[in-house]
Simulated assay, not measured.
Amino acid sequence: MTRFSVAASLLALAVTALPVQPAAAAASSPMQVYGAWHCSNDACTWAKVRDLAEFDAANHWLIDRGDGRPSVNVVVLSFVNPLRLLNGTTDAGNAAGVPVGMDQRVVDYFTAHGIRVMLSIGGITYTGDWDTALAQNGTLLGQKAAALASKLGVGIEIDYENSNNPNLTGLQAFVDAYRAAHPYDASGADPTARLTIDVAAGDRWLIGIDQYATANWLTTANPVLDYANAMVPSRQPSASSATANWQEHLDGKPTYNPAIPPLAPAKFTGSLYVAEGSKVRPECNDFANSVQKATGSWVQSAAPNGAGTTAGLLGFMFWAAEKPSTRGVTTAPPNSCEGGVGAGATAFSVPVPMPPLRQS
Rank of each mutant, 00 (worst) to 15 (best):
T2I: 01
V6A: 15
L10Y: 14
A14I: 01
V15S: 08
A17S: 12
V33G: 08
A36K: 10
C39T: 13
D42K: 04
A47Q: 13
E54K: 03
W61A: 05
W61E: 03
R65L: 02
P70I: 03
P70Y: 06
V72N: 08
F79G: 03
P82G: 08
L85R: 09
N94C: 07
V98A: 01
R105G: 00
Y109V: 06
F110Y: 06
A112C: 02
A112P: 08
V117Q: 02
M118R: 00
S120C: 01
G123D: 02
I124D: 15
Y126K: 02
D129M: 09
D131T: 13
T132W: 00
L140N: 11
G142H: 09
K144I: 01
A145L: 03
A146G: 12
I156N: 03
Y160S: 07
A173Q: 15
F174G: 05
A181F: 07
A181L: 01
H182R: 13
D185I: 05
D190F: 05
P191D: 14
L195F: 03
D198T: 15
A200R: 06
G202H: 11
Y212D: 14
T214K: 10
A215D: 11
N216F: 05
N216S: 12
W217K: 00
T220D: 15
P223H: 08
D226F: 07
P233L: 12
P237I: 00
A239Y: 04
A244Q: 14
W246V: 13
Q247T: 09
D251R: 08
D251K: 06
P258T: 02
P258K: 08
A259T: 05
P261A: 03
P261G: 00
P262T: 02
A266G: 10
T269W: 09
T269A: 04
G270V: 10
Y273K: 05
A294S: 03
T295S: 13
S301M: 13
P304D: 04
T310P: 07
F316Y: 11
F318D: 00
A321E: 07
K323Q: 13
T330W: 00
S336N: 15
S336R: 12
E338L: 09
T346W: 02
A347W: 08
F348G: 01
V352F: 05
P356I: 11
